[in-house]
């Protein structure tokens, strides 16, 4: 059985970036799907942070170490350099203090991995051009009822990393689970970025 196929495409790519035996912190880890997979396939030392108690229960059910906490309060509970990889998957667009969390990620870990919906995706641009706020596969909310408060394009995110003195190690932009090589900021709806200190 190849359980890798049961992972969401973006999580599968993240999993591919993580070396066996690494110490991994998953921020906004949800039900612990990624950590659980990494623990059973790559023997990682995993730790999750999750705000929602129902998701915390799901993580505990999987036997994962999980800390119930709001990422907006930072990662003060973790020592400098405690982890190899720190993952923030489809969460950053709902956070207030984006610079803060990116800096915290590289304080507690050597490598950061962020995934986010690409606001520069052509369908989003088209909906804006026709006078409406975008609603799409990766941004499935109406403007008046959404957890998302900070949208960016792939280019915007890259620029922010540069401003914070961070280096992009790898970047993949997806649409419907498939990598987009040509005009990724236009044709890709979901971005995955692996970064570290410059």
């Amino acid at each position: 059985m190849s359980a890798v196929n049961t992972l969401r495409p973006d999580l599968k790519l993240i999993a591919g970036w993580i070396k066996p035996g690494s110490a991994v912190l998953d921020l906004g880890c949800g039900d612990g799907e990624l950590l659980h997979w990494l623990a059973s396939h790559k023997q990682i030392q995993g730790m999750g942070v999750e705000k929602d108690v129902g998701q915390v229960v799901s993580c505990v059910e999987k036997g994962l170490s999980v800390i119930q906490s709001d990422l907006e309060y930072g990662l003060a509970q973790f020592e400098d350099g405690r982890f190899d990889d720190v993952v923030l998957s489809l969460t950053i667009q709902a956070m207030h203090n984006i610079e803060g969390i990116l800096q915290e990620m590289l304080r507690v870990g050597r490598t950061g991995i962020v995934t986010f919906p690409n606001f520069g995706f052509w369908e989003n641009r088209w909906q804006i051009a026709t006078g409406r706020m975008p609603v799409s596969e990766t941004i499935p909310y109406q403007w008046y009822n959404t957890p998302n408060i900070h949208f960016c394009t792939v280019n915007d995110f890259d620029r922010l990393l540069g401003k914070l003195g961070m280096r992009i190690d790898e970047q993949i932009v997806l649409h419907q689970g498939e990598p987009v090589e040509f005009l990724p900021n236009l044709l890709g709806s979901l971005a995955l970025v692996r970064f570290s200190k410059r």
Binding site: V56, C59, I67, Q68, E79, R82
Partner: peptide, 18 residues
């Protein structure tokens, strides 16, 4: 307690119940 356990590298889970 959780922070001390994390710093001590002990396995810990933490729930803060509403």
């Amino acid at each position: 307690i959780v922070k001390a356990l994390l710093d001590a590298r002990r396995p810990v889970s933490y729930a803060e119940i509403e």
